[in-house]
């Protein structure tokens, strides 16, 4: 269960103040996979970061009663002078996982092989993404926050990651941002629409997609 209680969040960029959330309240049910939709620049990623607890609301409260992941898909957080293995160890220790098992899992999944023993700064973007994806799949959460994950790698890797994704996320809650209506239809059963600092809840995924298209047309 994740709840936002009268949450406001805004920031100033080059002197222009932008209000992302304006006293928004929402109770996100535990048993629904949620898609977050909104127009470009409405602040979907910020909302997700507020939900994750990475960013603090200006006012109001965010309550989480389940284990919520960090916003998956971000490539930051890796120390580029440290090796892949050391980064994995760090995250698995942080979340109290057995680092050996996590390393094995990520090595197996990411197919990075010996590169894991090299500093992350030598990685290509694709390698970093594979590392990040593999690592996030290795840690157990009740709720996964997925910000625009796009499959990386070649066809076979895409297939593999989709398989892991599906397997791993069955029985877990997903809150995702995606521009692909296909992905949203596949994974989500409900949606949140972020507009003008308010959150609108839809328990029907088709309705929200319809409204989303209407808004885009504006």
């Amino acid at each position: 269960m994740i709840e936002l209680n009268c949450v406001s969040k805004g920031y100033k960029l080059k002197g222009v103040r932008k209000q992302i959330l304006d006293k928004a309240s929402i109770r996100i049910p535990r048993d629904q996979n949620i898609a977050i939709l909104g127009r470009n620049g409405a602040g979907k990623s910020t909302l997700m970061r507020v939900i994750a607890g990475v960013e603090l609301p200006d006012s109001g409260q965010v309550m989480r009663s389940s284990k919520v992941s960090w916003p998956l898909g971000f490539k930051g957080g890796f120390n580029s002078t440290m090796t892949g293995v050391e980064n994995i160890k760090f995250v698995s220790r942080l979340y109290g996982h057995d680092s050996r098992a996590v390393i094995d899992y990520v090595a197996d999944f990411s197919e990075l092989g010996k590169s894991l023993k090299l500093p992350v700064k030598t990685y290509s973007n694709g390698m970093k993404a594979r590392l990040a994806f593999g690592l996030s799949m290795a840690i157990d959460f009740d709720t996964y926050l997925i910000d625009e994950i796009t499959a990386v790698g070649d066809q076979s890797f895409k297939r593999k990651s989709k398989a892991v994704f599906d397997e791993k996320l069955s029985g877990r809650q997903i809150i995702m941002i995606s521009h692909s209506m296909q992905t949203i239809r596949k994974y989500c059963s409900a949606g949140l629409f972020l507009e003008g600092g308010k959150l609108y809840y839809y328990d029907n995924i088709e309705e929200i997609i319809r409204d989303y298209k209407l808004m885009l047309a504006q």
């Binding site: 009268c6 308010k198 609108y200 309705e207």
Partner: peptide
Amino acid sequence: PAQLKPEDILKGRELPASMTPK
């Protein structure tokens, strides 16, 4: 033209939090 308010389009409900602020 384009003066539709979001409320007019969005049929979703605002779903207030159940818990009162702690």
